[in-house]
Amino acid sequence: MLITRVKKKDAILSLCKGKTLLIACFGCKEVHFEEKEYQALKEDLKTSNLNISGEIQLDYLCNDDYTNKRFELHKKEIDEAETIIIFSCGVGVQTFAGLIPGKTVLSGCDTYVLPGFSGFTPSSHDCEQCGECMLGFTVGICPVTACSKGLLNGQCGGAKKGKCEVSKNKDCGWERIYNRMTVLKKDDLTLKKMIRVRNYNK
């Protein structure tokens, strides 16, 4: 089972630009979602002058096909927004970000692991439940799982022709992040300025 915790207001606000759409996954029995805290944060964000253009509530955001269908239903709202904050587990954020390559997608939650039953994630994306979700900084691609070494501070010197040194069948996670940053033309220097050290005590 996974637990998601809603991030603090300040961790989200600084990354939002323009019209911001909130998408919350009230999804599955495998993930505990902090509904009350989410509602409180939403009110808090509204009073902090964040330009919230709308809110969509979904479930099973981690399922590519299902989310793709829902995506068509809400296309207009999604197209109009400059920033999209996803309140879900890390898999949900990555699935959604993967469907809209040209949009800034932030994670609204940190995902933690709860020992015991492990939820099923019918998805090509992976979440290690590190409890310090940085998908909002890394354009919706997770460096913990997409990089073979789980590097948090950028590409190592081992990638050749876009492939990881571990396998020619695996794309370099950080090159994917970098390519998407280029597509998004992100002038955001936050990722360049930060030095991340993972907290394994989470």
Partner: peptide, 16 residues
């Protein structure tokens, strides 16, 4: 390296 940009990105972080 090709592309060079991710290398420069990391180089700046290392200097920092």
């Amino acid at each position: 390296a090709e592309p060079l940009e991710p290398q420069l990105f990391k180089m700046e972080k290392k200097i920092k």
